[in-house]
């Protein structure tokens, strides 16, 4: 029954309903803290996707060798290693991104999404589906934090800008709100919470709508 439902739901619907950030409230620490501009969001999103996919691959490949009661430390060691390597690479090749993301690169280790997917999916499925799952969840996460940064950056600074993290060259920068009319509190904690709350409420309303439609379709 649930498979039929899943097939009926379009990809977009599924992405929203099973959204790790706004639907399941996982990984919200980073979603709130670093989403002040879309540069950071893309950087963080890619980092998390890479770690997630690689960890899924590794966990899936040793899933038959790992006894049940030490699986947590095993996954933690794998994820921590991946995060440290990704962190070193970011620090070496994109130092501006490193200073923008700060401590949150290291905190990817405790990002509930990664350990959650490792336990819920990768430990029970072969490598192929695990890769797909990792990529999907990673993209979903990236889209969510991109949405947050989009709103926060436009409302908070009035501009939308993207720059190449490797060379610090600006790719584009457009001003959407005239100077002096932007709302700086969106760059701060207050704005982060408000944006998150509104987006979460929107997703929640969407979810309820979908469920209502399905219920009435069944009747």
């Amino acid at each position: 029954m649930s498979e039929k439902k899943a097939k009926k739901q379009s990809l977009f619907t599924r992405l929203l309903v099973e959204n790790p950030v706004f639907g399941l409230y996982l990984g919200i620490c980073s979603a709130l803290a670093i989403t002040t501009n879309i540069n950071n969001a893309i950087g963080m999103g890619i980092a998390v996707t890479i770690v997630l996919t690689l960890s899924n691959i590794l966990v899936s490949s040793i899933r038959n060798l790992t006894p049940a009661d030490i699986h947590i430390p095993v996954y933690i060691v794998i994820i921590a290693t991946l995060v440290t390597i990704v962190g070193m690479v970011i620090q070496a090749y994109t130092p501006s991104l490193y200073s923008a993301l700060g401590a949150f690169i290291d905190l990817i280790v405790v990002n509930c999404i990664i350990l959650g997917r490792a336990e819920a999916f990768a430990s029970m499925n072969p490598i192929g589906p695990s890769i797909l799952d990792g990529l999907t969840m990673g993209c979903s996460y990236t889209m969510s934090i991109l949405a947050m940064s989009f709103f926060r950056q436009i409302l908070g600074t009035g501009m939308l800008s993207l720059s190449n993290p490797f060379t610090n060259a600006e790719i584009f920068s457009i001003r959407l709100i005239p100077e002096g009319f932007e709302l700086p509190f969106f760059k701060e904690q207050f704005g982060a919470f408000i944006t998150f709350a509104c987006l979460a409420a929107a997703v929640s309303a969407f979810k309820a709508n979908v469920e209502k439609k399905e219920k009435s379709a069944e009747l």
Binding site: E188, Q189, F190, A192, F193, A197, C198, A201, S204
Partner: peptide
């Protein structure tokens, strides 16, 4: 509480106001 905001979203609104106070 409005239906869409029930549960976690309203908690984040509360957090927003508290963040403002503590800032």
């Amino acid at each position: 509480v409005p239906e869409a905001f029930q549960g976690n979203p309203i908690a984040f609104i509360i957090a927003a106001i508290m963040a403002l106070a503590f800032s």
